[in-house]
């Protein structure tokens, strides 16, 4: 065995002597190599933004989406392996549908997040499977108001006011910590997220990127999870670029 895992990383059902499951650590590494994804919960809704890295100039605009709707009132943002995450999105849609059929009301965001997390967790228990190489941010509005949860490969499911993951996780976190979430509107949050994603992006090292923005708000989108409309998005992007130029001067 080579030095990295010393044989303890061959299966998710083996602990290392210091109590780690290396496969889960590796899954987290896969997330850290991916474009940054951040979300902000405001008083009236949630905004999600993803720095979608473009691997080739020949890709169609808008392909490989990293923000998806799961139900009318819930959406997810993705960091990590897209194919793995799409599997989670599919499962989340199935859970949302079955909950509605059984209980006759939309699934609460917390319940959905916990069910998706339970699936991730199951994939850390058996030697025959590998952990999901992705983290997702689940945002939505239910009876409790706006909700924001992050689900990781380990199967953890944690609620946040502001969450970040991917390459620029730490830098984005530092920026998010300055925000007063309860005083912010979704409109301001869109600009803030655009600014953070643009500032976190490493122009030298990284490929080109496209900003993807999704939002849900009781007032702005009537409680539906939508992609941010073009005009608002381009406003936010020019605001972000200006802010970045000013900071560099």
């Amino acid at each position: 065995m080579t030095s990295v895992g010393s044989g303890y990383d061959l299966s998710v059902s083996t602990y290392s002597p210091d109590g780690k499951i290396f496969q889960v650590d590796y899954a987290n590494k896969a997330v850290e190599n991916s474009g940054t994804c951040i979300a902000i919960k405001t008083k009236d809704g949630v905004v999600v933004g993803v720095e979608k890295l473009i691997p080739s100039k020949m890709l169609c605009h808008g392909s490989n989406r990293r923000i998806h709707a799961v139900d009318l009132h819930i959406g997810v943002g993705i960091s990590g392996f897209l194919a793995d995450a799409r599997q989670l999105v599919l499962r989340a849609r199935a859970e949302a549908k079955s909950y509605k059929q059984i209980y006759g009301q939309p699934i609460p965001v917390k319940v959905l997040s916990q069910r998706v997390a339970a699936l991730c967790h199951v994939y850390t228990l058996y030697g025959s499977v590998r952990a999901f190489g992705c983290s997702i941010i689940i945002s939505g509005i239910d009876q409790e108001g706006p909700q924001l949860y992050q689900v990781e490969p380990s199967g953890s499911c944690i609620g946040y006011f502001g969450a970040s993951m991917g390459k620029g996780k730490q830098a984005a976190k530092n920026e998010l910590e300055k925000i007063k979430f309860n005083e912010m509107t979704t409109h301001e949050a869109i600009k803030e997220i655009a600014k953070i994603i643009y500032s976190v992006h490493d122009e030298v090292k990284d490929k080109d990127f496209q900003l993807e923005l999704g939002w849900i708000s009781t007032t702005e989108t009537k409680g539906q999870f939508n992609m941010v409309p073009k005009d608002l998005q381009s406003d936010a992007e020019s605001y972000a670029k200006n802010a970045l130029e000013e900071a560099n001067m």
Partner: peptide, 11 residues
């Protein structure tokens, strides 16, 4: 409703 929700999610 399920049908239109699926349609909404495909977006």
């Amino acid at each position: 409703d399920d049908l239109t929700t699926d349609d909404f999610c495909i977006d």
